[in-house]
Write a protein that binds this DNA or RNA. Structure first.
Lengths: 355, 355
DNA sequence: ATGAAAGCGCTAACAA
DNA sequence: TTGTTAGCGCTTTCAT
């Protein structure tokens, strides 16, 4: 027992005891100082900080978590980082979390429910204080089970389990905005390309349907998806139609892009011969060469609100669930225009073949 | 001392002791089983797992980290999540980390060095096993100090400190590819819009300069930046030039987009009257309406390699630094074309004013 | 205002 | 192969 046995290579970082010793105080006192507790004399506080600085001391988060049963950390499950949508929601989450002094443990699920569950499992091992699931694909029953183990908030998708906090944008309202806007531009044959299995597909599709009927119009929905491919496929069908729509409402910007691309190849020009609207107001849609009319969802605000709501539950031990719904706004841009007045029979079949 | 005193509300999760008791074995045995150690009889292993499942036991990561001095977690500092570039690098990081059984703690710096340092500080409090800095803006001296406290790897930017592991794409090679490609298309007046204060700006700019001189051409560099604005500003200058370039090599795709947009407003059409090349092969550049010729960097591979290299250092206690350089490739698309053969004097001033 | 002491849930020798 | 026993670095009563 001559020399202190050490792990080879890296020496252990200084502990609170080291600081206490150097400052000539007890470990508990150091703890008080580092947690910013009051009732510590200025003089001792000073001594502690000096000693800590000298040793380059840094509190050990694991030890702290173990002893305090709280680690000031939130787990954030993102479906996918590629989609700019998630990046923006995350931005809001990160800002709000930081302002509350929470760290973030993040994980992605890659649109695979099993992977998402693994990620959440990992959060639970960390004993995070709360979990935010952004557009999770985990099934409701599992969600409930998770929410019973840790404060949980779901954003970006609707769930049936009402006991879980949610933050969402109003998809129905968004769809209504689009239909009414196109209607006011004179469009009557408005087709919707839906989002396939995506969460928001149903509410948007349903709202589209309802809005059309309310206006006395005939709804028409084509299956789509969440990406360009879905739009292109639907476009294929549209090109084959004898009576084409004068306006298309796509599930999201990517679908709109995919559809536009294919339709333009088919000789249709936007917005002269057809109008099209996307959803999400992605950075892409705002790019000049694209300039897509779309619907904006307050993504960053959704992220902030998600964190705020979750931390509120953590702090207040609130048991009842809250559900926030934020309002989307229509962003009119270059892919929509007032329908040209012309003879009714001719209205739906512009000079496509001649273009 | 009648009832076990509890924190109000949530009951504590079961511990290894609970599992051991239920399975009728010692806690150490449970530990062995959960760490997948050999030399445990199949029968006991079974008993442990059953007991654990029954109790819904989940190891406590903090306790594990505290006792084992390793937490199988890497800290990842991302400059910014909005840029698709980082999302793709991160994707590679996430995949490789998962395959090695490492968790990720991520943080963003928002292009502010102080925030980045705070993020890293937080990683250190967690005693992460390693840190990956993606395009960090932290100054070299600080970087060295960090690397002395935890295995560190820098990717996405060059640093002077050779003692730190790095993974980068070859920016010089990328710039050469662009210049030579444009030269082969017949372009002689090739202008470069640089990246301003960005890391890669210097190597790309220098390589451009060198390549131009090697070809006997006159280099011309305009200040830019990392986003659309920089491109638009440079475009402003170009529009005022009496002898405009026939081709533009922009620092990245966003700068290229910004420049194109402004130049098109000025009446220049691409690629007929001018060619333009970006850098990064962002999703955006591949979009049909844009279809930008660009340079692809193997982002996902950079991410994978970063994790692989870092874990290697962690496992092997390697002391010497390694530096990986990956090769970019040119992606020819629609914004570049062979320069039309015409009288030499006329070559540089196409029918811009008449367009 | 400060200190002593008992854990938090786990891993890691070491013994058996 | 399995159990015993120290800690890991901190927070948290409870005294003083």
């Amino acid at each position: 027992m001559i020399a202190r046995p050490e792990k080879r290579g890296k020496r252990p970082s200084p502990t609170m005891d080291d600081v206490a010793k150097l400052a000539g105080v007890s470990r508990a006192l150091v703890s008080l100082v580092f947690r910013g507790q009051p009732h510590v004399s200025a003089e001792r506080r000073e001594r502690v900080f000096t000693a800590a600085a000298e040793l380059n001391y840094r509190p050990n988060a694991a030890a702290r978590a173990l002893a305090s049963h709280a680690n000031k950390t939130l787990g954030v499950m993102l479906q996918d980082l590629h989609d700019a949508y998630f990046a923006e929601v995350f931005e809001g989450i990160a800002m709000e979390a930081e302002s509350h002094g929470y760290r973030l443990l993040i994980g992605t699920g890659g649109r695979r429910p099993e992977d998402e569950e693994l990620t959440v499992e990992s959060f639970l091992e960390y004993r995070v204080d709360g979990v935010i699931l952004v557009s999770s694909m985990i099934e409701d029953a599992k969600l409930v089970s998770i929410s019973q183990q840790v404060p949980t908030l779901v954003t970006g998708n609707y769930i049936r389990a009402l006991s879980i906090d949610t933050v969402n944008a109003d998809n129905q309202r968004g769809a209504e905005l689009v239909v009414n806007y196109l209607f006011e531009l004179g469009h009557r044959r408005i087709l919707h390309i839906d989002g396939g299995a995506e969460f928001s597909s149903l509410p948007r599709g349903n709202a589209y349907w309802q809005a059309m009927e309310d206006l006395g119009l005939v709804p028409q929905i084509l299956p789509g998806g969440y990406a360009e491919k879905g739009g292109a496929d639907a476009a294929e069908t549209i090109l084959k139609m004898r009576r084409r729509p004068t306006a298309v409402f796509a599930f999201n910007d990517r679908v709109a892009l995919g559809a536009m691309d294919r339709l333009e190849q088919g000789g249709i020009t936007f917005p002269d011969e057809m109008s099209i609207v996307g959803y999400d107001n992605t950075l892409m849609s705002s790019l000049h060469p694209i300039n897509l009319t779309t619907v904006n969802q307050p993504r960053e605000e959704m992220g902030r609100l998600a964190v705020g709501t979750l931390i509120d539950r953590i702090d207040s031990h609130r048991q009842s669930a809250v559900h926030h719904t934020l309002q989307p706004t229509l962003i009119p841009r270059g892919t929509t225009r007032r329908i040209p007045v012309r003879s009714k029979t001719n209205q739906g079949s512009p000079r496509i073949t001649t273009a």
